[in-house]
Design a protein around this nucleic acid. Sequence first.
DNA 1: CCGTTAGTCCGTATTACATCA
DNA 2: AGTGATGTAATACGGACTAAC
Length: 212
Amino acid sequence: MENFRNNSSCLELSIAMPGFSSSPSGEMGGMAVKGGVDINQVASSGTEEECMEEEDEISRNDGGPTPRKKLRLTKDQSRLLEESFRLNHTLNPKQKEALAQQLNLKPRQVEVWFQNRRARSKLKQTEMECEYLKRWFGSLTEQNRKLQKEVEELRAMKVGPPHGRHPLPPSTLTMCPRCERVTTTTLLEKSPTTTPPATKMPFLQPPASCYN
DNA sequence: CCGTTAGTCCGTATTACATCA
DNA sequence: AGTGATGTAATACGGACTAAC
């Protein structure tokens, strides 16, 4: 059976992360998944069916819950998994099988590794977003503080000398999120920092000056 | 055509173990 | 040696999707 579900795009945020290419393969299906399988019983290149057989053996043992032991992947295994992940964030059954064979792991282990890896990616992205929003908040606070100050100054000017002085145009601050350089622009221009970062993170749209 | 069911994969939360300071 | 923190492999569960009936 094929499963064309392809919704890992929910992970697709606009922050560019190294090794996060978000190009899931579409074709899914065909693997038995549910059911607790203690796959730590040595990483032999077994099939899913063999996993199930092992599970049966385990559950037949003494009836009691078998303590699960945890496998640590070798550096080579991790490296190869990471390389595969860079190419694809999801695996179709054939890829999974091939990779498992190559790594001397069970397909289920490869599948779990990819699931956890996707979760870690997402967590990392969320942390980055959080960090960015904090900085955003900080810069807006600072911007607000300066504008308040400017308002105060303008008010003071208004009640001060009646004529002969041209007040400066009100300005606002713009911070480039990439280089974190603050520039001043007049309010007649559209200030990018006043645009909420709701949909797209402005990492991807730094001002042209950033590249100068 | 529509509803139901079974099978599959995925995301998410959690658990349990290994390792390190 | 004991312990708490951290990283991560593995499990549990529910949702989404598809094919078959």
